[in-house]
Design a protein around this nucleic acid. Structure first.
Lengths: 133, 133
DNA sequence: ACAATAATAGTAATGATTATTGTTTTTAAA
DNA sequence: TTTAAAAACAATAATCATTACTATTATTGT
C-alpha cells in the first residue's frame, strides 16, 4: 500500500466529519476547513475524502440526485431524506436481513449488497409549515 | 396542461423503450433512434424522455453512479445491477410492504417512498468467468 | 541538511444533463 | 390551401459535481 504522510488538512477534514452529524457534502466540508486553512483547495478535500473512504474511516453517501455526502458513522444504517429541508437522518437497519433474504430468493445471481434510501417530510418541517409541501 | 403535437421522433423514442427490456440510457436510445432519423439530436431525446416520464408512460431509473436509465415497464418493481457486466435486471417488489412498515416505525417524519437497488454478479457472468470478479 | 516522495493549490478537463436560440413542423382555422 | 400560433426541433452553450493534471510545497527518514 502507498505510504502516508501526515497532513493537517486531512486531519481537519476527518475531524469535521467525525464531530458533525450533518452528513456534509464535499463543498460544505471545504467551506468549514477553509476557516482554519484559508488556502485549502476543493481538490484537496475530494482527495482526502476518497482516501478516508478507502481506509474505511468514513463512508460516502451517494443518492440519485445531488452531490455526494459523507458520514463519519460507519456503522450499519440507512438514511432518510426530508424532501422539504433536504436534511439527511439516520435510520435503523433492522429490516436488512429480511431484505437480503428476500432478494436472494428472487435475484438473477448473487446478491452482495443493496442501497436503500427513504424519502418523506421530517417532523421539524411538518411542525413549522403545518402542511406537507 | 400544455398542448401536444405529433412527433415521429417521440414515437420512435417511446417505441424503442417499450420494445426493449434493456433499460437503456438516453445515449443508447439516441443511438437507436439515429438509425431511423439520422438527424435527431440528443437534446430531443432528453426532452421527449422527460415528457414521457411526466405523463407516466415510462419511468426514469436513477442510480448512485452512472447515467440515468429508462424503463417502459411502469409496474412496481425493484432493480438489480450486475457489477460485472452492468446489466440491469428486474426484481420482485414483494418486500415493499415490510420495508415501508418498518420504516414508518423508525422514521423522523412521514415516509412517502423509498429507493432500493440490489448489487451482485448475475448468473451469466458467474458462468462465463467462473469467478466473482 | 538533504534528497525522495507524498500532499498540495490552482486550473483544466470530464460526463451527464439542462438551457438557450433561431429554425422547422404540426395543427386548426380562415 | 394559405396562414398564423405554438410545439418540436438541431445545434450549441452552460451547468454541476467530480476527477485529472502540473508545477510547487511539506513531510519524512537518513
Amino acid at each position: 500500500m502507498r505510504a502516508t504522510k501526515n497532513s493537517k488538512k486531512r486531519d481537519a477534514v476527518k475531524a469535521f466529519i467525525m464531530e458533525t452529524h450533518s452528513h456534509p457534502t464535499a463543498d460544505e466540508i471545504y467551506s468549514h476547513v477553509k476557516c482554519e486553512f484559508p488556502n485549502v483547495s476543493l481538490g484537496t478535500v475530494y482527495r482526502n475524502l476518497a482516501r478516508l473512504e478507502e481506509t474505511g474511516e468514513i463512508k460516502k453517501l451517494s443518492f440519485t440526485t445531488g452531490p455526494d455526502h459523507y458520514d463519519g458513522d460507519t456503522s450499519d444504517h440507512y438514511h432518510y431524506i426530508c424532501r422539504s429541508c433536504g436534511r439527511i437522518y439516520d435510520m435503523p437497519a433492522e429490516v436488512k436481513d429480511v431484505i437480503m433474504k428476500a432478494a436472494k430468493a428472487g435475484a438473477p445471481g448473487t446478491v452482495e449488497s443493496h442501497d436503500l434510501v427513504f424519502y418523506g417530510v421530517c417532523r421539524d418541517c411538518l411542525k413549522s409549515t403545518g402542511n406537507n409541501a
